[in-house]
Amino acid sequence: MQPRTSPRRPVLDVRALTKVYGEGPAAVHALGGVSLTVDAGDYVAIMGSSGSGKSTLMNIIGCLDVPSGGSYLLDGVDVGRLADRQLALVRNRLIGFVFQAFNLIPRTSAVANVELPLAYAGVRAAQRRRRALAALDAVGLADRAGHFPNQLSGGQQQRVAVARALVTEPALVLADEPTGNLDSRSTEDILAVFDQLNAAGRTIVLITHEPEVGDRARRLIRLLDGRVRSDERQDLTGRHAAGAAR
């Protein structure tokens, strides 16, 4: 249950992050100075209405976008100073990203999709296959390894995406509305996987607008107009209660 890394050093350290889209009078301040830290092994849900800046924050944390101001340390590394090459390395080794739209590569089998981050990491083919199958097994899809994305249900596709996110054993698993496109049953499947991952010590940050998803996390951060409005720890009983109530 204890995190792998030292609890003294946060996995995520965001300091006064700002993001501005556009210029001049038409400029939109998506993030107006967000600061937060996430310790290793934590399970954080970020909630907020549409336009609250949660997706922007997520994309910056996932190194998919760059901030306009502020700094961001990932596992102690200042990501803002990294070149394109090193950013690719960070995305590959430190972050596992789960998208709302699954984003599997089409016409490519589930196991090949899961292998992809390992291929970019330079892992040998045999070991890659073994680890990808293990990851698929962890999300309960070992029997669907050879299926193409269009042969899988939404929930199954998302579980493949989760397997792909965790196959490199990243320090941080980021999920951008992972259940946004799923029915309640598939949502439960995915959340169960996240619970398991967190129980195994993975740090998870997810964004959602569904309260029942937010309730499962240990910590709930609410964003409003690009700022942190509340940041509270949730007790585990509440979390289990929410799970049992379904």
Binding site: R85, R91, P106
Partner: peptide, 16 residues
């Protein structure tokens, strides 16, 4: 292009 985005998000380098 979307696929390129996915690949980059998974850690593909520009050159790759």
């Amino acid at each position: 292009t979307r696929e390129i985005g996915i690949r980059k998000a998974l850690g593909a380098r520009r050159r790759t």
